[in-house]
């Protein structure tokens, strides 16, 4: 278990007692790079929120090493672009895990912020106000903040949305670098070509986990077809789910759930 960064035990996450991630069991190896894929509404972002702890599980549990540092780049950032701050101020937020509320930002810290900015190709942008950044530049700046956070577990929720191909290439290179540094990375991605090319492992969600493991196996046509056949809408009259009826205890393989078979 020690080499697992993250373990899901029969995890169900959702809203208003409707599941958005249903009975997920499995583990994320430390140092692995996993693409989380699936249609809109399949529970990818919900899983991310659950791991960060913003959303509490409806059932089951997520085990994470409490000492591990986590960095989370949400799909819908609540960043206020009109806030009067410079790019440096934004990236310096990433120093929080190290310095917290009251710790002084040292010369080293400032140097690491500068370094992060040049690492994402934003040299010389430090003094610009954040309301002058384009979409792609903002995404680079947010990646710089993740760099500064120096986290063991990195969660990126659709980081390539509305980003041009050159920026995508740069950001993917950055993710590869993190992978080389043995950090654990989960990325929500829609572009399956990108997944095949750069991500060794994948988790295919359709509310239930459909497949999880080696990317080439996960992306087999049969899995993709099954992932497409799920109902996005909630059923208000769905019966209550009783987990003990349909849960295999002691089965820790990445497996798709019995529900899937039954639903078809």
């Amino acid at each position: 278990m020690s080499q697992n960064c993250l373990t899901f035990n029969d995890l169900t996450l959702g809203y208003h007692s409707h599941p958005a991630v249903h009975h997920l069991t499995g583990a994320v190896r430390a140092g692995s790079l996993t693409a989380v894929i699936g249609a809109n509404g399949s529970g990818k972002s919900t899983l991310m929120k659950g791991i960060v702890g913003i959303l509490k599980p409806l059932a089951g549990a997520i085990d994470r090493d409490p000492a591990s540092r986590i960095a989370y780049l949400p799909q819908q950032s609540e960043l206020d672009k009109s806030f009067p701050a410079r790019v440096t101020d934004l990236v310096s937020l990433g120093l929080w895990p190290r310095r917290g509320l009251l710790g002084r930002h040292t010369t080293e810290d400032r140097a690491s912020v500068e370094q992060a900015l040049s690492g994402v190709g934003l040299e010389g942008f430090g003094k610009r106000t954040i309301d002058t950044l384009s979409g792609g530049q903002m995404q680079r700046a947010l990646f710089a903040r993740v760099l500064v956070q120096d986290a063991d577990l990195i969660l990126l929720d659709e980081p390539f949305n509305a980003i041009d191909s050159r920026t995508v290439t740069d950001l993917v290179a950055l993710i590869q670098r993190w992978h080389g540094e043995k950090r654990t990375i989960l990325v929500v991605v829609h572009d399956l070509e990108l997944v095949r090319e750069h991500f060794p492992e994948a988790l295919l969600l359709a509310r239930q986990p459909v497949a999880w493991g080696d990317t080439n196996k996960v992306l087999e046509p049969a899995n993709l077809l099954r992932a497409r056949q799920f109902h996005e809408a909630w059923d208000e009259n769905a019966p209550w789910c009783a987990p003990q009826d349909d849960h295999h205890h002691g089965d820790h393989d990445h497996h798709d759930h019995e529900h899937n078979g039954a639903a078809r």
Binding site: V52, P74, E78, D80, L93, W96
Partner: peptide, 9 residues
């Protein structure tokens, strides 16, 4: 500036 970020750290 970024409430969701603060919640994550």
């Amino acid at each position: 500036m970024d409430p969701l970020f603060l919640r994550s750290v």
